[in-house]
Design a protein around this nucleic acid. Structure first.
Lengths: 226, 226
DNA sequence: AAGGAAGTGAAACGTCTATTTAAAACACGT
DNA sequence: ACGTGTTTTAAATAGACGTTTCACTTCCTT
């Protein structure tokens, strides 16, 4: 019913509910939560605005559904990999690098996901610092279990690490992860944009050694070799 | 003129322009840009709503002013410290740890700033992933010079580092910095909240060794000592 | 003291927002 | 073909938003 001239080149196929879901994921990934209106979504999805409240209850219900839809398989993969970290090492401490891989690879190394994976990553990065209480509780509920599991496994990988370190080191990890996901282009222009900074295999290849080096530092500490 | 009953316990003293400035900084730091209305600000600041457009032109003019007001001394301090990095080492490469200190300490290590420093940090963390084009250009204009200088100095500290590394490593640094600044409480509850995670001396104490370890890694690389 | 700029005040502007209503269209088992 | 539950539609609702207008007061200069 809407003017065909303003249709985007992204797919707006499938059922009404699916079109809303995919369009919402794309717009949330580009503009965050507050800068996307239901009218934006329903216009591009070529759907009546009342359909959102019919299928998802409210705008916050929509974003909760979108989050769960994309986060569920990611979290499942993370927990599976964290399980393997524990099994692989027996009674010995698990490997820091494996734990970081378990946390990062399910989000970054998903070339098979195509646009969907990228939309979820950017949406996450965009909303990770949103202050809306409803958005915050969705984020907490979605990632609390795997975050707690990550810190727990990491504390066993680094026995004797004081709790201050177990706060600031994961803070560095989560910050780096979120910032890389949002891909807001701040750093790209400063470091020469002649290469593909959207290659998420590179994100893993370069970030995991970086974060591993920080996390394997002795408590409080300086590196032995300068 | 507004009802005295809803006054906050923060200071709402000074001129009209100052009251708007300080109240805006506080609210932006707590709720970001989109979730703060001019009516929120002017109600708490006990000021007529028209005063914002009179003194600052528009809402985006206000946030630009607030940013510049707080960022200018921080950026000056950063550039001064980066200059000292270069001078100290002569022709030899500057030290990675010193460069990170130059970037981080002016924001984190400012106990003398009190509430103002904290408001600026959180505001920065909250808005670093905002997608509003006007907000983005304010961020770019405010921090581009010092960011470019940071990457440049770091590239001389790490000669031979490929440009992919000069993208992903600063991404980790900026991400960790922004996430720590926003202080959204995600990690705190997971690592035992029995200590003071708002101590910004700790932020420097623990984050700089972490990030230094990552940045001093050989290109592409594994650490020599496991 | 007079004049003029600077600042403040109450009220309204038009636009956008999420949400709701109720009627119409559809799908489908009987 | 009929009736029933589900989905889609157009229209309207109430409220929040940034911004503007203009009359009023305050303050400083001459």
């Amino acid at each position: 019913m809407a003017d065909a001239g303003i249709h985007e080149d992204f797919s707006v196929t499938g059922s009404t509910k699916e079109r809303i879901l995919h369009t919402a994921a794309r717009l949330f990934s580009e503009r965050g939560f507050d800068n996307v209106s239901l009218r934006d979504i329903t216009t591009i999805a070529d759907v009546n605005i009342a359909a959102v409240n019919y299928h998802f209850g409210s705008k916050i219900g929509l974003v909760a559904y979108v989050f769960d839809h994309y986060a569920a398989p990611v979290n499942a993969a993370r927990l599976k990999l964290l399980d393997e970290c524990d099994q692989k090492c027996g009674d010995a401490p698990p490997a820091v690098e494996d734990i970081l891989w378990a946390l990062l690879s399910p989000v970054f190394h998903a070339p098979d996901n195509g646009d969907e994976g990228r939309h979820f990553r950017q949406m996450l990065g965009r909303m990770s610092s949103n202050s809306n209480p409803d958005v915050r509780s969705i984020l907490f509920n979605t990632f609390d279990i795997v975050s707690a599991r990550f810190v727990d496994t990491m504390s066993r990988a680094c026995p004797g690490l004081p709790k201050e370190e177990l706060f600031w080191r994961p803070t560095c990890v989560y910050g780096a992860m979120m910032y890389a996901q949002a891909d807001n282009g701040r750093i790209r222009t400063l470091s020469g944009n002649s290469f593909d900074s959207t290659n998420m295999d590179d994100a893993l290849k370069y970030m995991i050694p970086f974060l591993t080096a920080g996390f394997t530092l002795p408590p409080g500490g300086k590196l032995s070799a300068g």
